[in-house]
């Protein structure tokens, strides 16, 4: 359980996090979404006790981070990939971190195996790719078998196989009842792994809750249908609660029906389909719309403040 209460963090002139409140519950994957520079990493650094909040507070399993007696057992975090001395091996890097919390060597070897770094663990980490660095960071997050796993942009630099692996890993960690908190600037990635979603922009909370709600409140889902008999198809599909728009010749944008229903109706009417694709992009667009508003609001406020000073 992570609780963030009215958190603000200012770096000089810049207010990186602005009165942010949310809670991350155990047992599900919670996505932490926002454009670059929205304050996601700052928030995570404050949660880890690395940066001191300007105001507000953060609780990790009910305590402030500095008061955790066995921190690696409470929360494991990946904050940046390749945060390792280039001259040190992954094995010694993890062994040193483990030692500080009394975690034994066996566990170090286990997590190295778990992230698939066994073959390179004894080599100097300077030659690691970004993807290997991410795997190492995940290994260090899992060292203490923690109740909370918090990862900042974990899929960055991973190959497709690695991305799939991380999705399954996060889901299985949540399935074991752990709190899993993962940041990303990619809505599409979050849509695949997260059950809960926290969206921020310019340091402010924009949306928090189950991802299903976010999707529902976001723009309506549509299905793109391409057919040489588009006009006839439109007539078959249109009806109560269904809208059909003809966006370009031979292409229909259908809302209110799922792809299966469209396909069945087309088949029943003996119409040919060339494409039948659910438009997930609407989710991405909803996210961009949400964050764009925040960006604009703050840009205006900033311009006013500047104007005020010069007068």
């Amino acid at each position: 359980m992570i609780e963030v209460n009215d958190l603000s963090k200012r770096y000089g002139e810049k207010l990186a996090v602005d009165s942010l409140s949310f809670a991350v519950r155990p047992g599900v994957v919670t996505g932490f979404l926002g454009p670059n520079g929205a304050g996601k990493s700052t928030t995570m650094r404050v949660i880890m006790g690395l940066d001191r909040p300007t105001s507000g507070q953060v609780r990790v399993n009910g305590r402030s981070y500095a008061r955790l007696k066995a921190p690696l057992q409470e929360i494991g975090a990946l904050l940046e990939a390749k945060a390792i001395h280039p001259g040190r091996s992954a094995y010694h890097h993890l062994l040193s971190l483990a030692a500080s919390n009394g975690i034994d060597k066996g566990r170090v070897l286990d997590v190295i195996d778990m992230v698939g770094l066994s073959e390179v663990a004894r080599k100097r980490a300077g030659g690691f790719s970004l993807g290997m660095g991410q795997r190492l960071g995940i290994a260090s997050a899992l060292l203490g078998d923690p109740r909370i796993v918090m990862l900042d942009e974990p899929v960055n630099g991973l190959d497709p196989e690695g991305v799939l692996w991380i999705r399954n890993l996060l889901k299985s960690l949540a399935g074991q009842g752990r709190t899993v908190f993962v940041s990303s600037h990619l809505m599409s990635e979050m849509a695949l792994i997260a059950e809960d979603l926290i969206v921020i922009g310019r340091g402010r909370l924009l949306s928090a809750g189950p991802i299903a709600e976010f999707i529902a409140q976001a723009s309506t889902r549509s299905v793109r249908v391409r057919s040489p008999q588009a006009a006839s198809l439109g007539g078959v599909l249109v009806g109560e609660g269904v809208t059909v728009t003809n966006t370009e010749p031979g292409v229909l944008e259908v809302t209110g029906l799922d792809p299966a229903e469209i396909g069945e109706r087309a088949a029943a009417a003996g119409l040919v389909l060339h494409e039948l694709s659910p438009q997930e992009a609407s989710l991405e667009e909803a996210f961009m719309e949400l964050t764009r508003d925040a960006v604009e609001y703050h840009a205006t406020a900033g311009a006013l403040a500047t104007a005020g000073r010069t007068n």
Partner: peptide, 26 residues
């Protein structure tokens, strides 16, 4: 893909001797 879940009874507190060991390894 599944980490071994260990019992909560393990003593994983931070102590100065343990931090010394960390720095010694580093």
């Amino acid at each position: 893909t599944t980490p071994a879940v260990t019992g909560p009874s393990r003593d994983l507190r931070v102590t100065l001797p343990r931090v010394l060991r960390m720095e010694w390894i580093k």
